[in-house]
């Protein structure tokens, strides 16, 4: 219970601080609304915001899974082929030095105003921490475990599946969590670059042009909520898939093997 309560309390405190600053310093409503006004700007326009939100969520999810899949694949290959690790690593680091904003325009030139642009940008951001963590995890598997497998004549494949992969679960999830936090940022940057059609980012720009400060802040809040939710889903997946990190006794599932 405390695990849920403490984050909620700190979020409320941030909201109160915001409220206090706006009230105490007499901030004009066209500069910054009060938190409740920003939230109202979202709830009152929910019917038009919801489809845009769905769009951003879709881009985030597609991009996240593309990036995560790519990241894991690259990580495994790099960990297993040292030559590739040395040659590909600098390329990957360079890829992350490219400012994402500067990446968007050429992507639009190539793919046009399409969802592909957003997916590529998100994947570009997500794959890197995943690859780095998978390479790290796989190269730091305890050599004694691998020797044990060798003594008993285990095949490389079985050693990989039953020792190396599960041993990499924790670093993999660290990478996925970092990726999840930045995924929405990527999607929004993509929406700004591919500035056609409808999207949350453009809705915000529109609100800005209309001096609708509550709308601007509200949209920011909405994007943040998408980001947090995605992060929490990844955390939930980690909890479900790595029960040994928190439990001392394995759960009994109806599908647990018996006999």
């Amino acid at each position: 219970m405390r695990n849920v309560l403490i984050p909620i309390v700190s979020l409320v405190v941030v909201g109160l601080l915001w409220q206090a600053i706006v009230v105490l310093f007499h901030v004009a409503p066209y500069v910054a609304p009060r938190p409740l006004q920003a939230i109202q700007a979202v709830t009152q326009n929910w019917s038009s915001l919801w489809p845009l939100t769905l769009g951003t969520i879709r881009e985030t999810i597609y991009g996240f899974f593309t990036g995560a899949g790519l990241g894991v694949g690259l990580g495994v290959i790099m960990a297993k082929v040292p030559v590739l690790q040395r040659s590909v690593y600098p390329v990957l680091v360079t890829s992350q030095a490219v400012p994402i904003i500067a990446l968007a325009s050429p992507l639009v030139l190539i793919f046009g105003f399409s969802v592909v642009v957003m997916v590529i940008i998100v994947a570009w951001i997500v794959f890197f921490p995943v690859t780095v963590n998978v390479v790290d995890g796989l190269s730091h598997v305890d050599q004694d475990f691998l020797n044990l497998a060798r003594v008993y004549g285990a095949s490389r494949w079985r050693t990989f599946v039953h020792i190396e992969v599960p041993a990499t679960a924790s670093p993999l999830f660290s990478g996925l969590k970092i990726g999840a936090t930045y995924a929405v940022t990527g999607a929004v940057i993509g929406e700004l670059a591919a500035s056609s059609g409808t999207s949350l980012a453009l809705y915000q720009e529109h609100a800005n042009t209309n001096l609708n400060a509550a709308g601007v802040y509200g949209t920011t809040l909405l994007m943040t909520v998408i980001g947090i939710s995605w992060f929490l889903l990844v955390v939930l997946a980690e909890v479900a898939l790595t029960p040994w990190q928190r439990r001392s006794v394995a759960r009994r599932y109806p599908w647990s093997r018996r006999g």
Partner: peptide, 18 residues
């Protein structure tokens, strides 16, 4: 390999298995 039982000071139990 594959012809002896082998045990070290480190128990080498995998933490993810019961």
């Amino acid at each position: 390999t594959g012809h002896v039982g082998y045990m070290l000071q480190k128990d080498l139990l995998v933490p993810w298995r019961t």
